[in-house]
Write a protein that binds this DNA or RNA. Structure first.
Length: 462
RNA sequence: UCCCCUGUAGCUCAGCUGGCAGAGCAAGUGGCUGUUAACCACUGGGUCCUUGGUUCGAAUCCGAGCGGGGGAGCCA
């Protein structure tokens, strides 16, 4: 059986076929009924026309029971459509109903719904235009990620989701346990983690980077792409408690190659979307974010600007009255600063490099000035930080000193430090938040609307 | 976690200085029409988020709680 995408693409006028899908709308007229059928294979639906004079009583009765949301099969002949709105349509000959969808209770109506409302029915929202389009683009972007790295000889490494090290250095972690916490609390006993499943406290991973570095030091070019978890109580349109992250890592590479990879990567993904998701992007451009396609095309053919942190601060200081937080050398760049740089100064993607060591992670390569590290953040308009990365500190003594400076215990990182003890080499990588990329590509505002089942504080239904 | 806004019909919202609960859309019925965000008429539809208070009287004013949105922080 052909899906609707194939029918619309390959179907020849005059051919008999069966289409299966879910009814978006039914419009009745005296002479005919029009059923728009969508099966999710593409943005467009197939208009099925039921001629009242050509239907037997069984078909008429079946059509009576069809309403928005019903799952049906329509058998008929593909014909050129006499009306504008669609080049072809299905002249229906019979109708089979798999599942009715009572109109008085089905939550999706043939009208626009707010995204807030649709979040409350996340099990039904993929049946809408917006979420169908998001799902298709999300699939293409995931495919493009693997394609990009495969073309460049990177190996996909599956880093663990459960970790027993609480030192991944990126935020609050969710604890994982099989202990009977209720019973322990009831009995007033202390918690003995040596009796827990892993014999020690364990968590959901906040980053695959430390693990993927181990494979980087063996396979050279690697990446990980999987879910990560942050137990931060952050409630914003750009944070999730469970999100997907892509983290490449390259051996024998320094910061410039890291930046080049990041730029190529983003352009590759945007190009892929432009090339393969035309209908869906056209919808986003029309209804969600006007100018989206022109923006994506602009970025694809642009050169990312480069700016050192020092120069960025100098630029911000020139306009300091515009900011709530006054910029100064050593400050962490605030959201308002990042957006000013990318939206007003550069008006496009910009890579900011060489941040002060005190505001960045311990594993970043220390510059010779003793004050900065070889870090880079890619900032894009509307989204802000989409990529954070760095060249890694590969000198054992410098890395240990950096840990101690930040109050970390090197013993906790024994296996990570072993990578610097045995055959250490320069390497660099970054992390790209997949849902932030999705916000960028689709123009969707809230990150909860670009992942099928969002996990955020107080939000884990479905 | 902090700041601001918000919670009224299935959905989106109006409801003024406190005085009988409203509209559009959706749904149901009828009509019209190769329709396509269909159109016209009629009908049904409410724990005004919860809780405590003020008042003769609270959707409306005040307190507390819960939910939703936006901004900030944390970050990807």
């Amino acid at each position: 059986m052909q899906d609707i995408k194939a029918i619309l693409r390959d179907g020849s006028v005059g051919s008999a076929l069966t289409a299966k899908g879910w009814v978006r709308t039914k419009r009745d007229t005296k002479g005919a009924a029009f059923v728009e059928l969508n099966d999710g294979s593409c943005f467009a639906g197939l208009q099925c026309v039921f001629d009242n004079n050509a239907m037997d009583d069984a078909a008429k009765a079946a059509l009576e029971r069809v309403s928005t949301g019903a799952a049906v099969a329509v058998k008929g002949v593909l014909v050129a459509s006499p009306a504008t709105g669609q080049p072809v349509e299905l002249r229906a000959e019979s109708l089979e109903i798999y599942g009715e969808s009572p109109a008085d209770s089905y939550p999706l109506q043939k009208k626009a719904h707010s995204f807030e409302f649709l979040r409350e029915i996340a099990h039904l929202r993929p049946r809408t235009n917006s979420f169908g389009a998001v799902a298709r683009v999300r699939h293409e972007m995931a495919y493009a990620v693997h394609s990009f790295y495969a073309e460049r000889g990177f190996k996909y490494v599956h880093t663990p989701i459960i970790t027993a090290s609480d030192c991944e250095g990126a935020g609050e972690m969710f604890q994982v346990t099989t202990l009977d916490l209720d019973g322990i609390a009831k009995r007033g006993e202390p918690v003995d983690y040596s009796k827990d499943f892993f014999g020690k406290r364990s968590y959901l991973s906040v980053s695959g980077q430390l693990n993927v570095e181990t494979y980087c030091m063996a396979l050279g070019k690697v990446y990980t792409f999987g879910p990560t978890f942050r137990a931060e109580n952050s409630n914003t349109p750009r944070h999730l408690a469970e999100f997907w992250m892509i983290e490449p890592e390259m051996a024998f590479a320094e910061l410039p190659e890291d930046m080049a990879l990041a730029e190529d990567f983003i352009k590759y993904l945007l190009s892929w979307a432009l090339d393969k998701c035309g209908d869906d992007l056209a919808f986003f451009d029309k209804r969600i974010q006007p100018g989206l396609i022109a923006m994506l095309e602009g970025v694809r053919s642009s050169k990312f600007a480069h700016l050192s942190y020092g120069d960025a601060v100098k630029e911000l200081e020139k306009h300091k009255d515009q900011f709530e937080f006054k910029p100064y050398w050593g400050c962490d760049l605030q959201t308002e600063h990042e957006r000013y740089l990318t939206e007003t100064v550069v008006k496009g993607p910009v890579i900011v490099t060489d941040y002060p060591k005190d505001i960045k992670a311990f594993y970043m390569r220390r510059n010779d000035d003793g004050k900065t590290v070889r870090a880079m953040d890619v900032l894009v308009p509307r989204i802000g930080e989409i990529i954070g990365g760095s060249e890694r500190e590969y000198r054992y003594d410098v890395l240990v000193a950096a840990m101690q400076e930040k109050g970390l215990n090197p013993d906790d990182y024994w296996w990570y430090l072993d990578l610097r003890r045995y055959g250490s080499a320069p390497h660099a990588g970054f992390g790209l938040g997949f849902e932030r990329l999705m916000r960028y590509v689709t123009g969707m505002e809230n990150i909860r609307d670009v992942i099928p089942f969002p996990r955020a504080p107080k939000q884990a239904e479905f």
